Amino acid sequence: MTLERILETAISEATGTPFGPARSSDAGGGCIHQARLFEDEHRRFFVKTNRSDAAALFATEAQALTELVAAATALRIPRPITHGQHGAHAFLVLEYLPLGGRGGPAGYRQLGEQLAALHAVTASEHGWHTDNFIGSTPQPNTWQPSWSAFFRTQRLEHQLDLAQARGAGRRLIERGAKLAAHLDALLGDHHPTPSLLHGDLWGGNADFTRSGEPTIYDPATYYGDRETDLAMSELFGGFPTAFYEGYDAIWPRSDGYAVRRELYQLYHVLNHYNLFGGMYQQQAQRQIDRLLAEIGH
């Protein structure tokens, strides 16, 4: 059976309405999966495909989107339709959103306000009901009551272990381990409420529909410090100032955010080293050195 017929059958079963014959076109974007528009005469869907070993990535992304859709009061988030694996193929079918609208200052301010509202959805502990992925890297999410302990074990030490296996320099690993050991001193009295997070919020994972609705997608969801989403949003170019003004108008960031931003960005820089290598090792080393200097090491 061709991939097209597999998708037609899966969509028909998931929606309860026959779908097809369908035509497919490249949707562009993405460095991990193939993205395409899949449509018949009546309906259109956004589809991600990959080899069968990507099935777990698609399953956890569908779970994250389902949770975000249920929690979001205003943000437009694509609904997962179905996902699965057939032969050599894995797939994820999403609601099609007509993206490409212009945000402008008002739109980005609204995006910030709506993200703050999403972060107001909370849990009793940090983590998530299952492990998932950050990019294609496994992301452990074992529940923990302490944010410092969660970030140490589930985020920083996890990425350092992967970096060591990848061949990172001894200095990065040793200094990174020292930072992990002194994380309580760095975070001080910062004990955030576990907020529902996007988890991978950079400019490439946010957009506006053609009617101007803010939207976010491609999540790596868990419950944790809301500032991790904001820190990631500033890592690769950042969002316009209006986004942060809108967020802070609803829920201002706490004192000490600038230092925590460096720490939270380190997680993503280490992940980029583990995915792509290259200059990210030096960037991570500089961040670790700056963070250790904050606590006199």
Rank of each mutant, 00 (worst) to 15 (best):
T2N: 12
L3A: 06
R5E: 01
E8V: 06
T9K: 15
A10V: 01
A10S: 02
A10L: 07
S12D: 00
E13N: 08
T15R: 10
S24R: 13
G28N: 01
G30H: 12
H33N: 15
R43I: 02
V47K: 02
S52F: 14
A54V: 07
A55Q: 05
L57W: 14
A59G: 10
T60H: 10
A62E: 03
Q63C: 08
L65V: 02
L65W: 14
T66C: 11
E67V: 10
A70T: 03
A70N: 08
A71Y: 10
A72V: 00
P80N: 01
Q85I: 09
Q85W: 01
H89C: 06
A90T: 04
V93M: 07
P98D: 07
P98Y: 06
G103A: 04
G103K: 03
R109K: 08
Q114M: 03
L115F: 11
A120T: 06
T122A: 07
A123N: 08
S124Q: 12
W128H: 13
H129D: 06
T130G: 13
F133C: 07
T137S: 11
P138C: 03
P140W: 12
W143Q: 00
F150M: 05
R152M: 05
R152P: 08
T153K: 15
E157S: 11
H158F: 15
H158W: 15
L160N: 02
D161R: 15
D161Q: 15
L162N: 00
L162H: 02
A165V: 06
G169Y: 12
I173T: 05
E174G: 06
G176M: 10
G176W: 13
K178Y: 02
A181L: 10
L187F: 10
G188D: 10
P192T: 05
T193R: 14
L196D: 00
L197F: 07
H198M: 12
G204C: 11
G204Q: 05
A206Y: 01
F208G: 03
E213K: 02
P214A: 01
T215K: 09
Y217A: 03
T221H: 05
T221R: 06
D225K: 09
D225L: 07
M232H: 03
E234F: 13
L235V: 00
G238M: 09
F243P: 02
E245C: 01
G246C: 04
D255I: 07
Y257Q: 05
A258Q: 08
V259N: 01
R260L: 08
L266Y: 14
Y267H: 14
V269I: 14
Y273W: 13
Y273E: 04
G278A: 13
M279C: 13
Q281W: 13
A293Y: 09
I295M: 08
